[in-house]
């Protein structure tokens, strides 16, 4: 596996879907080392499907995708993944340190006897400013605190590519901002690459190197200022769309004729 070249993810004419149909088609893009990339699009557009392709959990229907210049494969240790959680909630009375430890050594058979996983877990938790949460139960953590733990869980094995699936959903504005800044500082300080799925691009805009916009079965990629234009999104959606900017640089995407307003 060659990790020296800057290309971390490269897709050519990539088509994704399931046995019952195509989700999106003909996507070509590259993501380079150290880039912070947002994946934006309406519900069901196929954003998580892209993650599944990168993780090797699903095969492309067409085209080609390479991760670290190789075919995607399950269990790639260079990838840290934060899925949308459903299993961990207010009923999960487990210390957060235990979860991060398991993310480090959970693949090993038998019972843990060395303290290596504990040290690694504490280090990862410190990196995301969650050392104070180490001995608290997952069941009592707030949404923002949980996302920090999940980020530590993804970082503990020292990945070079982070996949974050909607970490901002259910966070209030302040925690949304905190988490985006945290991810950005991880990306910059460790020179890792982050792909982050979100509904609202605005909290991410100041930090992004690239946007992958998925809608209407198509994928548009580029720098934010290239993708988030009325022309580019009109072409993507196939209906007239206007991108509005406010005085602080926030964008709003509105349909001009059909008023059902996607994000």
């Amino acid at each position: 596996m060659n990790t020296i070249t800057p290309e971390i993810v490269s897709a050519r004419n990539l088509t994704a879907g399931y046995s019952n149909g195509t989700v999106w088609r003909e996507a070509s893009f590259t993501v380079n080392r150290g880039e912070f990339v947002a994946i934006i699009g309406p519900n069901g557009a196929g954003k998580t499907t892209l993650f599944r392709l990168i993780l090797g959990l699903q095969q492309p229907l067409g085209g080609n995708i390479e991760i670290f210049n190789a075919e995607p494969r399950r269990g790639n240790p260079l990838i840290g993944y934060v899925p949308q959680r459903h299993g961990i909630d207010s009923e999960t009375n487990i210390e957060s340190l235990e979860l991060v430890r398991l993310a480090f050594s959970g693949k090993n058979w038998g019972v843990s006897l060395s303290g290596r996983d504990r040290e690694a877990a504490l280090g990862a938790m410190k990196d995301v400013g969650a050392q104070d949460l180490a001995h608290r139960s997952l069941s009592v953590l707030s949404g923002g605190e949980l996302q920090r733990i999940f980020l530590a869980e993804a970082l503990v094995s020292g990945p070079e590519l982070l996949l974050l699936d909607e970490p901002l959903s259910n966070l209030d504005l302040r925690h949304e901002k905190d988490l985006v800044q945290l991810v950005n500082s991880v990306v910059r300080s460790r020179n890792v690459t982050a792909l982050l799925i979100a509904h609202n691009i605005n909290p991410l805009l100041p930090f992004l190197d690239k946007v992958i916009f998925i809608a209407n079965g198509k994928v548009a990629t580029g720098k934010p200022e290239e993708v988030l234009t009325s022309e580019s999104l009109t072409a993507l959606y196939g209906v007239p769309v206007e991108v509005l900017h406010d005085s602080r640089g926030n964008v709003a995407i509105v349909g001009i004729e059909q008023h059902h307003g996607d994000e």
Binding site: L57, N76, P77, Y81, P83, G87, A103
Partner: peptide, 15 residues
């Protein structure tokens, strides 16, 4: 334990 707690990550880790 890990797959019971966090099945999605366990699956992605190739477990």
């Amino acid at each position: 334990l890990f797959s019971s707690l966090d099945e999605d990550v366990a699956e992605a880790k190739g477990m």
